[in-house]
Simulated assay, not measured.
Amino acid sequence: MNSVIISDYGVMLAKKGERLVIRGPKPRLELIEGGPQLFLALGIGAKRPTLTVLTSEGPKTPAPPLRRSAPDANGVKPPKKSPDEIELPLFRVGEIVIGSPGVSLSADLVEACCERGIRLSFLTRSGKPYAMLSSPMLTATVITRREQLAAYNDSRGVELAKSIVRGKLGNQASLLKYFGKYLKESNPPVYEELTALAKSIAKGRADTKRINGPNIDDAREALLSVEGLAGRTYWKGVRLLIPENLGFGSREHRGAPNPVNSALNYGYGILYTQVWGAIMNAGLEPFAGFLHVDRPGKPSLVLDMVEEFRQPVVDRAVIAAIGRGTAIETHEGMLTDDTRRTVASAVLERIESEVNFRGRRYKLKSVIQIQARNLASFLREGDSYRTFSFKW
């Protein structure tokens, strides 16, 4: 199933028969290879409709321009009368992410997406999710939500929050080790520092185990203290992996003008849509979290579950792209259109990649959905919940 990302102003989405139609001035179509499947990122701005394949190794391999012929092996239909239009078969679309203002879509398309379980997610240009459209009948469950709300006031909420923090710290340590191993010969001092920082973070995992309480309200402050200390240590390690000319001093969240922070924030926004959709498919309430406090408009459970996937999905993709020399550029404090497309491609390519999980090979996007269902089972039936661990 393909992911379609709309990242430019003036695009129109509609439905024609059983196909998704994308209209906009000079659309650019990119197919990014993620194993046997392909996903798509669409935008405008190319001089003519082009097709670019990005392999898992990173380099772009240009292909000939689209021609007026039959659909290709992936069902992509080249323009017929206008170079401003591209069509895709709906059965190959898994989600549509709209990351730009000025994008319009038809009611027929919304209905077709709801019927087929295709998520429609909306992001600001900085990557902050602000809406998601889906049919409520796809997750018309009650028991899971009842147990989720009840767990806030008993030990289940504490155990889940502890698992989230332990999993996040484990993945932070693993990511520093992952990038550090490539520096063991070329830069021993940095390798040694990264190793020491990873060990310090691992100590926080042991501290987490000793935190207890009758409910999450009694345990949250201690858990956030451990998480905060580990976070400062982790970002100190990340700073060693980022070229000094990019000016990455520390982790900043929304509104950060630094290009690295902006790229991370945009990548996290894409990850949020994946996790949010998985949570809804599992019959969970996105706004009733445990580690993150409740606040109107804050999808606390989404933020909880995102924690175990930040490092293996977004941080690894962005740091690796920078390490390959990919330009991360901003204009007036915002990522440029080309950079947003680059970051989206890197993050989606990582989401489509396969990893070892519970003794089998799965795509990361499948692991996200499996974990959402495991979380629902934990809340309903008391099954243990183990976070996804990034293998370095």
Rank of each mutant, 00 (worst) to 15 (best):
L123F: 07
K363I: 09
S345I: 10
A376Y: 04
T330V: 15
L241H: 02
R310I: 03
E221V: 08
R28C: 13
E30T: 08
T50Q: 14
L90G: 04
E307D: 08
E87C: 10
S3P: 02
E352G: 15
Y152E: 10
K365W: 10
G267H: 01
K168L: 03
L149V: 12
K81I: 06
S100T: 10
A317L: 00
E252H: 04
A73L: 13
I98E: 07
N245E: 15
N171E: 06
A41D: 10
L229M: 15
A140S: 07
G228K: 08
K168S: 05
D108L: 12
T208H: 06
I32E: 04
R68E: 03
S135P: 11
G277S: 13
G255R: 02
P136T: 07
R239I: 09
S106N: 03
Q371D: 05
L42W: 03
L335I: 02
A278N: 07
V343K: 01
K298N: 11
A73F: 12
L31T: 14
L246E: 10
K162M: 07
L138N: 08
R48F: 11
G167W: 04
K363G: 15
M137Q: 05
S69N: 04
F39S: 13
R360K: 13
S82H: 01
I322S: 02
V318M: 07
D154P: 09
R92K: 12
G283P: 12
I328W: 03
P71E: 09
K365E: 14
G94A: 02
A14I: 03
A107W: 05
S389R: 11
S100N: 02
R68M: 01
S366E: 15
A63R: 14
K181W: 03
R68D: 01
E252C: 09
R360P: 05
T273N: 07
V21N: 03
R92S: 13
V165I: 08
N215P: 06
G269H: 01
I22D: 00
A288Y: 14
E85F: 01
T273Q: 14
P136Y: 05
L223F: 00
A320E: 14
E147S: 06
P243S: 01
L90A: 02
P71Q: 10
R220T: 00
S56F: 06
Y272N: 03
Q311A: 15
G231S: 15
F122R: 00
A161C: 01
A161I: 00
R251A: 02
F91S: 11
